[in-house]
């Protein structure tokens, strides 16, 4: 299964990309599985004071299940308006 990761603002600058593709052997993974792999490969993300995640444009939790083709966005603290 393939998950597309999206990055914005400081997260995008730290990772150095606006998008990454992660392939997993398992049929499903959770948000925390993907975030753990991401943090291990991009330790620089520690510089983000906090972030939320969104799965297919909806805020998700650590235990939210991900399926093939899902989009997981790393959402740094928002500051619109």
């Amino acid at each position: 299964m393939t998950i597309t990761l999206r990055f914005f603002a400081l997260g995008r600058e730290l990772v150095g990309a606006s998008e990454l593709r992660y392939v997993f052997d398992h049929p499903t993974v959770t948000v925390s599985d993907v975030v753990q792999r991401l943090k291990s490969e991009y330790a620089v993300l520690e510089q983000l004071p906090s972030f939320l995640v969104a799965v297919n444009s909806e805020y998700g939790m650590n235990d939210t299940a991900l399926y093939d083709g899902d989009e997981l966005a790393i959402i740094p603290p928002v500051s619109g308006g």
Partner: peptide
């Protein structure tokens, strides 16, 4: 509307 937009809408300001 503006208070909630600032809290939840994914927009970032540099």
């Amino acid at each position: 509307a503006i208070d909630t937009l600032k809290q939840v809408v994914p927009i970032w300001k540099k």
